[in-house]
């Protein structure tokens, strides 16, 4: 538990669900989200880069084999759902999968670990799972969304994009309805993408916090099964975010 003497359950939960924020209003920054995700990004992609730099087409080492397994999995998925020739889609999918996976995996750290370490440095809050911060998930889904719009322009041109927005799915006679549908669809995509990830991880973290409220000798009883189950959730959510992004990108690059 945290440093203050005997917080109530509500205080404990609230403490764990508060970001370490500096600034006021919109122009404030959740430093825990920014720093944690950046550090994880550095570690994960630093390792991948070190492998990529020394890569051999001969017999691979264990680390190289592990990276290759991930990359081949991503490549297979992208190959199955995306048939355009845009070079960005596969690296985008790899980035999403690895980054989200690493960030989600922070959920498996003991819930008190990060806040306690932060407390040593005099920092009051540290939410260690950036995917439980909607800022993070929306940042990712909106980036994907803008890449989709860019893809639409690149593949079809502004005219083709507008024509598709006006004529699909009901044909030119119902252009206004088509446009409205298209706008709803395009807004729904990034929202559902980000909220799915956020909701899953937030709920998972919440359960860990609740387990953290139990007496210490009983915590393993629920904590262990939930953590084991959460390994699946972590991987699955990373995979879903990746595959949906690939599908959205393929919808952007292919004409209907």
């Amino acid at each position: 538990m945290s440093e203050s003497a005997a917080p109530t359950a509500t205080e404990y939960i609230q403490h764990h669900l508060t970001n370490f924020t500096v600034g006021h209003g919109f122009w404030s920054l959740n430093l825990d989200t920014l720093v944690t995700s950046a550090v994880l990004g550095l570690i994960v992609f630093g390792v991948m880069y070190s492998v990529a730099r020394r890569i051999t087409s001969g017999v691979p080492g264990k680390l190289q084999a592990a990276v290759e397994i991930v990359i081949e999995m991503v490549e297979t998925q992208v190959h199955d759902s995306f048939h355009g020739d845009a070079k960005i889609v596969a690296p985008l999918a790899l980035t999403i999968f690895c980054w989200v996976f690493a960030i989600n995996a922070m959920d498996l750290l003991p819930v008190d670990f990060a806040p306690d370490v932060a407390a040593l440095f005099g920092i009051e809050h540290w939410k260690v799972v950036p995917t439980t911060d909607p800022n993070h998930t929306f940042a990712m889904s909106l980036t994907v969304f803008f890449l989709c719009i860019f893809g639409n322009f690149a593949a079809k041109g502004p005219g083709g994009y507008l024509k598709e927005a006006l004529t699909v799915p009901f044909g030119p006679a119902l252009a206004p309805a088509n446009l409205i549908f298209r706008i709803i669809e395009d807004i729904a995509k990034p929202i559902s993408l980000s909220l799915r990830l956020f909701g899953n991880m937030y709920a998972g973290e919440m359960v860990f916090i609740l387990i953290g409220l139990m007496p210490i000798y009983l915590q393993w009883l629920l904590g262990a099964p939930w953590a084991i189950f959460h390994i699946l959730v972590i991987t699955l959510q990373a995979f879903i975010f990746m595959i949906l992004s690939v599908i959205y990108m393929s919808m952007a690059y292919e004409s209907h």
């Binding site: 404030s28 920054l29 959740n30 989200t33 920014l34 940042a139």
Partner: peptide, 8 residues
């Protein structure tokens, strides 16, 4: 939602 979204 705050400026974190831009940073991320």
């Amino acid at each position: 939602i705050n400026a974190t979204i831009i940073g991320q």
